[in-house]
Design a binder for these strands. Sequence first.
DNA 1: CATAGTCAGTTGATAAAGTGAACCCTAGAT
DNA 2: ATCTAGGGTTCACTTTATCAACTGACTATG
Lengths: 159, 159
Amino acid sequence: MNRFGEMHCSIAQAVGVVAEPWTPLILRDLFLGLRRFDQLSEDLGISRNLLTQRLDRLQAAGVVEKVVYRERPVRHEYHLTEAGRDIVPALITLMAWGDRWSTPPGGPPAVLVHSCGERFTPRVTCPHCGGPADADTITVVSGPGAAQGPGTMVLARPD
Amino acid sequence: MNRFGEMHCSIAQAVGVVAEPWTPLILRDLFLGLRRFDQLSEDLGISRNLLTQRLDRLQAAGVVEKVVYRERPVRHEYHLTEAGRDIVPALITLMAWGDRWSTPPGGPPAVLVHSCGERFTPRVTCPHCGGPADADTITVVSGPGAAQGPGTMVLARPD
DNA sequence: CATAGTCAGTTGATAAAGTGAACCCTAGAT
DNA sequence: ATCTAGGGTTCACTTTATCAACTGACTATG
């Protein structure tokens, strides 16, 4: 656990796990169906020792599991756990942001299709009213676990 | 622009901008209403030179703008641009994931309230059918800008 | 009017991460 | 017996990050 993991903030918690360099791309590849060390290494161009370390961390965080697919020599596949699959919506929301604000030349490299059959762009909504949840409609208030400390949410006084 | 910014993948693009260490927390604080260098420095405990560098990068990426609030000596406030505000849904989706999978002792430090008046947890949906968008209902297909290269999306053959 | 304090950084020494290439081991294929 | 593949580890080197001190231009206080 790095220093972000110790902060009393859920964003910091999440960031501590999944926002280290390369990690989001590793999760993307696992979601896309890559399973093996060499596939990841080749696709990403990440140095191999760092890939080892990231996969270990992700496993420790419960986001990825190592599945033995052959004994002697021991060989593993890497799969997303339930927590890992649960981060996919956050990942595609980020991807949509990337598409919107820094479209690479030639259009988006990938597009999303929903099980309803349509191409789509993810939308973040409020489950009660179904309306959009964005910077204009969201307020953050301090919760039961609020505390003082580094990186702690300072709920700023309203302007 | 770092090496992620050069990859042909919208996730990598987004990651290149907002997933450097500290950056998501800086964006969180700006969204919460912090404006000034020292406030950010104090709240986060980030080293000041790194904060300077991160703010510069965010500005270069068009996510943050520096607003002069006093000449002589020149003093700035930092605000989210439209692109910056547009990343808030991704940030709170990440926060919800953090809450769900690594709840700190004492409950979540912060809770979200929607303009409809209810507390809520963000939900990522398909704008066509309104159904949930998650690892089970999303498929990724290669788009017009797909290309070969490091970090490039290898659309893996289906299992 | 002198002194202390504030704000937004910059500088520089030290510690931690990341990079790239080479190497290792086991085992099946030629 | 040799070659290739998979899945790492080791090591020398480069890049980032941290921590603390310092600067400069004001502003407020005694």
